[in-house]
Design a binder for these strands. Structure first.
Lengths: 131, 131
DNA sequence: TCTTGCCTTAGAGTTCACACGAAGGTTTAG
DNA sequence: CTAAACCTTCGTGTGAACTCTAAGGCAAGA
C-alpha cells in the first residue's frame, strides 16, 4: 500500500508516517522503482501498534527503544517481552493517576459550593480519604 | 512559605511556579519587604489544585479560563462547574483508551511467540474481539 | 566586609511531536 | 504533450510548556 493509503487507513498524516520512520519507530519502508514507499502487511502492523501506544500516551522515546530491540532479532525476545510488560505497567500507572484525579474532580464537583478551600482537606480528597 | 518551600512541597520548579503565576494560573502572590514571594495557605491550595489538573492532562489554556471565571466571582459558578464536568469527561475518555490499550498489550504478551503478525487480527484484538 | 547563596525580572533557548514549504522527480487524466 | 496531482528529501516553522541565562538586589555566615 502507498503512503496515501496508509495515511488514510490510520488517520495519520504522511508527515507523521515519514517522521516515525525517520526516528526508527517504524521499520525502513521498502521503495518501488521510483523511490516511492510501499507499505507491506508487516509495516502496517507496526503502524497500527505504534499508533495504539502513542494514543495511550506512550512517549516516542520509549517506543524507539522497543523497536530497536525488536530489530536486533530473536535473541532479544526476553528483553522485548519484558518491555511489553513494562509498557503495560506504565499504562496501569497512568490509569491509576487518572482515576485518582477523576475522584478528586468528583469531590470538587460535589462540594462545588464550599468556597473555603483548605489545603489539607484537598489533599485528603485527592488521596481518596474523603468521600 | 517562600518559593523554595513551595517548590519542594509540590515537586515543581520555581520557574514553573513563576510561569504559572505570570500566566494567571495562580493568584498574584504577595511579596515581603524585599520583594520575595510569600505563599499563603490559599495560594498553596491553588498550587495543589492546578498541579492535580495539570497532572491529569488539563491544558494551561483551559485552566486559565477556569481561574479567570473563578476571579469573576459567584455569577460564573455555572460555567466553572460545567468546565469541571467537561474535564471529568475528558479523563473518562482517556481512561477508556488506556484500558483498551492495556487489553491489547495483554493480547500481545500472551501471543508473544506468534511472530506472524496479521493486521486484521491485531485490530480485532485491539477492539476486544479476540480473547 | 567578603563571599556564598538565596531571590528578582526580562528575555532568550529548549524539547517534543509534529507540520509546512521549497525544489524537484513521477504518474495519470485529458 | 502537458498540466494536475502525486511522491521524494531537506530544512525550517509551530505551539505548548517549560527552562535557562544574564544582570542585579538581598541575606547570612566566617
Amino acid at each position: 500500500m502507498n503512503i496515501n493509503g496508509v495515511s488514510k487507513q490510520f488517520d495519520l498524516t504522511k508527515d507523521t508516517l515519514r517522521y516515525w520512520e525517520r526516528l526508527g519507530l517504524l521499520p525502513e519502508i521498502k521503495r518501488n522503482d521510483s523511490g516511492y514507499r510501499e507499505y507491506s502487511e508487516r509495516d502496517m502492523n507496526w503502524v497500527f501498534y505504534i499508533k495504539a501506544l502513542r494514543n495511550a500516551g506512550m512517549s516516542i522515546e520509549a517506543l524507539i527503544e522497543f523497536v530497536k530491540l525488536y530489530r536486533e532479532g530473536k535473541q532479544t525476545a526476553g528483553s522485548r517481552k519484558s518491555l511489553l510488560v513494562d509498557q503495560r505497567q506504565d499504562l496501569e500507572d497512568q490509569r491509576k493517576k487518572i482515576e485518582k484525579t477523576i475522584k478528586y474532580l468528583d469531590y470538587k464537583i460535589d462540594h462545588f459550593e464550599d468556597h473555603t478551600l483548605n489545603y489539607e482537606r484537598e489533599k485528603l480528597a485527592y488521596d481518596g480519604n474523603i468521600q
